[in-house]
Write a protein that binds this DNA or RNA. Structure first.
Lengths: 151, 151
DNA sequence: TAATCTAGGACTTGTGAGGTCGTATATGAG
DNA sequence: CTCATATACGACCTCACAAGTCCTAGATTA
């Protein structure tokens, strides 16, 4: 459990691929390389482009390129572009009333956990995915600094 | 995404409830309190008992009790008892080859993220779920993104 | 012995992830 | 100009699995 969707997986693989590749790459190219259904890969890339993580070039010899440097795009960015906001609980937002969970006794603690996860995802950059170099800071257990807070 | 299953939710709620309640509680009792389908709550509790997190007392006036103290049971324990091993990727274990992902380029980095998440879940105890004491703020064993979550 | 509880297998159902198809549109090469 | 190659995107299919139900058996107490 707590698994991320295959689309998100594909997205991360594509991003890592693009982070390494100098020029641009087409959906088909990436899809074939990693044995991902082409149509699906295309959808994922389109979504990433729409969210401003990739720039697209239409037409023959077209393809996708990272919109920013790989060090400027976090894993959280990618996942959220594909799967929407990362949340552990069913209650999607903090101000949410989840009907039957009005009396929920674990809501707040779970949000803290959720924050930890989001923080971890926000600190890991696509560049680290690409060249699997454990970034210096990374060795610390959980040491998550306060104040990441995407917004 | 990255949401945990409802069963896991229910399990955590039940554990938190039991952590507070002095004696034992029946499945029905807990289910009704949190408006959870009784049969389902029962199944969840049975599972927790089978995994050694709860002790059960059969028969009339029976019910469930925490097998250990609430400070000795982590959120990870609970989730894993219900949903199986927590893993971010499709590849279930480290030594696994996920067929089509033989050429996976993000496997190892994702494992690191997965470890961070598991670590966070392992460090949060049921006791913290129960009395929603923001451990992070108070004792700061883990520096959580405690920023004023103002959505 | 009746009521209340856990134990657990078998079953049904609803939903959404995963994947496909069709079509429109942009672009470069020959 | 036109063809091959791309992206763009909505609509659709399908099938596994979470979520929930049902049923029966066995334990315990009053």
């Amino acid at each position: 459990m707590l698994r991320l969707s295959k689309k998100a997986d594909y997205a991360l693989m594509a991003m890592a691929h693009l982070a390494l590749k100098p020029g641009s790459a087409s959906a088909r190219e990436i899809a074939e390389k990693y044995e991902i259904p082409t149509e699906l890969m295309a959808k994922v890339l389109q979504r990433l482009a729409r969210h401003g993580l990739l720039t697209s070039q239409q037409g023959a010899r077209g393809g996708y390129t990272l919109a920013r440097t790989a060090t400027g795009i976090s894993v959280a960015d990618v996942i959220q572009a594909i799967d929407g906001p990362v949340s552990v609980t069913a209650c999607s937002t903090h101000g949410d009333r989840c009907g039957q969970f009005a009396k929920c006794n674990v809501r707040d603690p779970l949000w803290r956990i959720s924050d930890i996860i989001v923080s971890a995802l926000s600190k890991t950059m696509v560049s680290e995915l690409a060249n699997d170099v454990p970034a210096a800071v990374e060795r610390a257990p959980i040491q998550i600094a306060a104040a990441p807070v995407r917004a």
